[in-house]
């Protein structure tokens, strides 16, 4: 094991996975989203369930 991958094993340089829905289907992480969709995801507000 290289020094680098040993460090990775402990988390150095390793991000969190954030699974989100694009258009009905999910995408494993947002790395592969296009810029407009990333902006759209960033702008999403939560909807309250108070009646």
């Amino acid at each position: 094991m290289t020094v680098e991958s040993k460090q990775n094993k402990l988390g150095a340089g390793v991000g969190f996975e954030r699974i989100r829905r694009i258009t009905g289907y999910l995408v494993g992480t947002m790395d592969k989203w296009n810029d407009a969709k990333k902006a759209e995801e960033r702008d999403r507000v939560k909807h309250s369930i108070a009646k």
């Binding site: 988390g11 969190f16 996975e17």
Partner: peptide, 27 residues
């Protein structure tokens, strides 16, 4: 739905992972 691949935690992760306490990219 977030997941920390280091400690395997699945749930909502804000700035730090609730299970192992690391920040994104931190060892």
């Amino acid at each position: 739905v977030d997941r920390d691949p280091i400690c395997g935690y699945v749930g909502v992760i804000g700035d730090t992972c609730p299970r192992c306490g690391r920040r994104e990219g931190e060892a």
